[in-house]
Design a protein around this nucleic acid. Structure first.
Lengths: 349, 349
DNA sequence: TTGAAAGCGCTAACAT
DNA sequence: ATGTTAGCGCTTTCAA
């Protein structure tokens, strides 16, 4: 395999007997207008014949656009991110753009990655990082880089974002367990420094309030993990005893941790306590019992974020700065079908 | 936010009172040798002061290297790929390189993506696509693009690859169920057009042969899905009846499908039939019963693939063309601890 | 050790 | 509708 020198626009021009600029125009759909049909035809045929492939690096240098966007995720192995990434990638690919993916588990690291992405001349960036990183947002706005956040809102309001409606999600979960006759309802909340953690707690409280109820207990998890869920649930049980009808969890993994702690305490799910999760991770329909949870449009979240970004890049920013997508309740066996007739008649407040 | 014109190497040169080429040299670790220490110091200080950020598009045009590698995955939401991707990304990031990720669910699509990546001037490519795509490999070798395959070997032997040892994996699974007293052992095989499907079937048969046994039955799944596993298992039961001690599956999802079909037939896991999976997907430790499976070093698979690629790019290709990593048996409750003493004493052949 | 100059492949004024 | 020209920011000979 001898390294064939790549075919340039000049080779095409020469072979077609025209000038390079003509080739450049004929090959660009957006400027093809000012070129005769035969010329376009001739140039395209010649280009194809020679196996010409436009050099994006050269075009990037000239135009300042790389047709590349960056995506920052905290942890790709967290199952919420692949579908988001897929959405972003799908939208980008549909426009002939590529996606530069980088892991950035902490804010300091994220800053370095953005710095490198800036050097790489990305056209824009999608932030799927979970923490509230004001310095990062400061840095990005100062740099002038186009950015969109996904899966969390920018509290400072400087960056557009695409999120799921956490309030509505909690309302769906709370109303569901209320409907099945549960009255003593607790919440295992996510880390309060994460927007989803704070938002879902708030939504939980509001939903209960609207129903004229109050929380049977709230425990905060240290992270979105099964272990954190287990120990939070254990603490909750230690505090409120077994006087509990349902536990609404901030996250599926936390809910599975709650399973562990509830069982360790000799409680059955859902006969004694109903449990709900959040995210509808793969396989939560396979655990025992299958988990009632909140399904999020992760793929669409990613797609819309990319779309929002491209609209900014094109200067046709018609969409609102914050897009809120609707989550949906996915009922499975971890919540009771109906607690019992007596409970429905005289709910235990 | 007024769009500040970016600081170029020229600005740095001017501010430092030196020539651009000096700046270029001083800023490149590999050529810093031929520059005086004070000069390096001066240039670096000036660059930092002005907030200089090298423009990779310009350097790419000049050197032909973008510091970017492409990764092709068939489906990011399949949980085997995120850790592979993470490994690739980690290795790339450690070298200051970025990863362009693209989904390519079918070979035709993959070809188009590679074409675009070539235009994007990626330095190389990691193929994590599952199908045997000879035309793709032809195309890539013809284009002269550096490429490495991960998670499947290149049967034509033209591309280096990093894979898990499927034979060993099956041997581990088969020997495990044999050890627990199972004798009538069947296999739910993956699609035979996929290398993993064919390889694991082969490994299964070989492992049984080595143990002096023969398969109680083999059924091929149409895909690596739960539904495919369910119907394959149903067919297997229809053929061999309930005369089965264990089912070794090509994949965790298929194993979960087998759960469904076994239960529908009134069989208990593992009391009546032991089941093993492959991949150790997240949450398979949470299903009922927790799945005995084969754990793969997915992250390392990705990391090594990237490493192999970079060695090729650097011309320091010391590693072998095919790297085979070791899978490990993860024993959980879906396989019997011990079938029974009688069985051990007089195994049912 | 540093400076000068050329040019990577492409696009976009401007000129015809 | 096509050709001419300059130059994007950087690296790399070559010369001093």
């Amino acid at each position: 395999m001898l390294p064939t020198p790549p075919v340039t626009i000049r080779d095409v021009a020469q072979a077609a007997g025209v000038h390079v600029s003509t080739v450049s125009r004929a090959l660009d759909p957006r400027r093809r207008a000012g070129v005769s049909a035969e010329m376009v035809e001739l140039v395209e045929r010649t280009a194809r014949r020679l196996g010409y492939r436009p050099n994006r690096a050269a075009s990037a240098l000239r135009t300042g656009r790389t047709h590349t966007i960056g995506v920052l995720v905290p942890d790709m192995t967290n199952p919420v991110f692949p579908p988001i990434l897929q959405g972003v990638e799908g939208c980008a690919a549909a426009r002939g753009c590529f996606v530069l993916v980088a892991n950035a588990s902490d804010p300091a690291m994220a800053m370095g990655v953005v710095e490198r992405m800036l050097a790489q001349q990305v056209d824009g960036i999608v932030l799927a990082t979970a923490a509230r990183e004001d310095p990062l947002v400061d840095f990005i706005t100062a740099s002038g880089l186009h950015a969109v956040m996904v899966n969390r809102a920018d509290e400072s309001g400087r960056l557009p974002s695409v999120v799921s409606d956490d309030r509505l999600a909690m309302k769906l979960a709370v109303e569901h367990v209320l409907r099945t006759g549960c009255r003593r309802i607790a919440h295992l909340a996510g880390p309060q420094h994460l927007p989803t953690g704070a938002g879902r707690l708030h939504g939980f409280e509001q939903a209960l309030r609207e129903a004229g109820q109050s929380a049977a207990g709230v425990e905060t998890c240290e992270s979105y993990s099964r272990e954190a869920g287990r120990s939070a649930m254990a603490q909750l049980l230690a505090r409120v005893g077994k006087r509990l009808d349902a536990v609404v969890c901030c996250n599926d993994l936390v809910a599975l941790g709650a399973y562990d702690a509830l069982r360790a305490a000799g409680l059955r799910i859902p006969e004694d306590v109903s449990v709900t999760g959040h995210n509808d991770m793969p396989l939560v329909d396979m655990v025992n019992p299958p988990l009632t949870t909140i399904g999020l449009p992760h793929r669409e979240l990613g797609w819309r974020a990319a779309q929002l970004l491209f609209e900014r890049l094109d200067g046709t920013s018609l969409s609102p700065a914050t897009v809120v997508l609707r989550p949906e309740l996915v009922v499975r066996a971890s919540t009771l079908a109906l607690r019992d007739a007596a409970a429905m008649a005289a709910p235990r407040a």
